[in-house]
């Protein structure tokens, strides 16, 4: 059983802002059925570029629901610029922390938010850069490198916890491990 804290439990059992929005200004969709979790985020944005309302639909585990609920609460009232700076850590912090194995739920929140904002701004969403390392979850080497650096991760397992890569069939774990190791070994030099 995951050691969810009271705040996470509360946001799972009493999620805020659930539901489809009738006329959303922007929608951000991430995840899929096969992935095991998915989030559809709806934003209502006013003329001056401020988020005035947010709702969500989530398929996923308790922390996916809680992260989505938290996200909608957090973004209400933010300008788009402010919202764009919001990170997965902010979401986890808002919930007083998530089990490390569940960090990918907060990452999903961050991704959905950025996707919604970019689509609203009309920014073309590019092909993901880099080469796909984890086919199960479509994660590229560049994404892995960024995640490892941003969150100071130590091994492939941590990577799975954050962005799922390696958490499916597992056949990419060794590749992830070697990416992490090469980053760790260069770290002392660059820092």
């Amino acid at each position: 059983m995951w050691e969810y804290n009271d705040k996470v439990k509360d946001h799972f059992l009493n999620p805020r802002n659930v539901g489809e929005m009738t006329e959303p200004s922007a929608v951000g969709e991430v995840g899929s059925l096969s992935c095991g979790d998915a989030l559809k985020l709806f934003l209502k944005i006013n003329k001056s570029g401020r988020i005035v309302d947010a709702t969500f639909m989530t398929f996923g585990c308790a922390s996916a629901v809680a992260s989505s609920s938290a996200l909608t609460e957090m973004v209400k009232g933010l300008t788009l610029d402010e919202a764009e700076k919001l990170t997965n850590d902010d979401i986890a912090d808002y919930l007083d922390g998530l089990p490390k194995e569940k960090m990918h739920c907060s990452v999903m929140g961050q991704d959905a938010l950025r996707k919604a904002i970019r689509s609203y701004k009309g920014i073309e969403i590019q092909e993901k850069p880099g080469n796909v390392v984890c086919e199960c979850f479509g994660v590229t080497d560049l994404e892995i490198i960024d995640t490892v650096k941003d969150n100071n991760l130590k091994n492939a397992e941590d990577v799975t916890f954050y962005i799922k890569a390696g958490g499916g069939c597992g056949k990419c774990v060794e590749k992830i491990e070697s990416i992490v190791e090469s980053l760790l070994s260069e770290a002392p030099v660059t820092q």
């Binding site: 095991g36 979790d37 979850f137 397992e157 799975t160 916890f161 958490g167």
Partner: peptide, 8 residues
């Protein structure tokens, strides 16, 4: 799920 894996 408990094993960290997300696949069924």
């Amino acid at each position: 799920c408990t094993s960290g894996s997300l696949d069924p």
